[in-house]
């Protein structure tokens, strides 16, 4: 794997990459960005747009720290490229407090002690938002399953699950 990556990276870059105009809705606002079509969405958000709430924990879709919502479904910003956002509706953790449900997720994470180092937390909160929006009837095991794509190295998950169970019960 290592060798392959290095070979790919070793090919000198061609002529200056053409940037494309990509229009989408970001946290409720229509935006137009100039980016190369293959720019990773995580880089677009963090580096180009200054939205550093979404974190990169692995870059390979394994940890969930970059979880965002695209057209209402959870997606991993490290596995998407800019062109895929054309015409879509994107929500990042920066918009968490824009909805009642989002505020409840935020407050429950705070009051239930779901936050430690906080680096997985934005992605976890977006995954939590998705589950309580889509399946407020979800019980504790179902919530565990819904969050199983988001790795946390600090908590042992107990207080995260507590928080989401609490929000789900409020949403029912």
């Amino acid at each position: 794997m290592n060798d392959e990556k290095q070979q790919d990276a070793g090919v000198p870059e061609g002529p200056p990459e053409k940037s494309a105009v990509i229009a989408f809705t970001l946290n409720g606002t229509a935006v137009t960005v100039h980016a190369t079509p293959d720019r990773r969405v995580i880089d677009l958000l963090r580096e180009d747009l200054g939205l550093t709430g979404s974190k990169e924990g692995c870059g390979t879709g394994e940890c969930g720290a970059c979880t965002i919502m695209v057209d209402g479904r959870t997606r991993l910003a490290c596995l998407m490229v800019a062109a895929q956002l054309e015409g879509r509706t994107v929500e990042t953790v920066e918009s968490l407090a824009d909805s009642d449900t989002g505020r409840r997720v935020r407050d429950a994470f705070v009051t239930h002690g779901a936050v430690q180092c906080g680096y997985c937390t934005p992605g976890m909160a977006m995954a939590a938002l998705a589950v309580v929006r889509e399946s407020p009837e979800a019980d504790r095991p179902a919530i565990r399953e819904a969050l199983s794509g988001n790795l946390c190295r600090c908590t042992g998950y107990v207080q995260i699950i507590d928080a989401v169970v609490h929000v789900a019960s409020e949403e029912r």
Partner: peptide, 20 residues
């Protein structure tokens, strides 16, 4: 609750990796 929890959930806590 921890003093840093609200900022961390909202993605506002600045980490070294967030500096550009």
């Amino acid at each position: 609750p921890r003093g840093d929890a609200a900022a961390k959930v909202a993605g506002r806590e600045p980490y070294a990796a967030d500096a550009y």
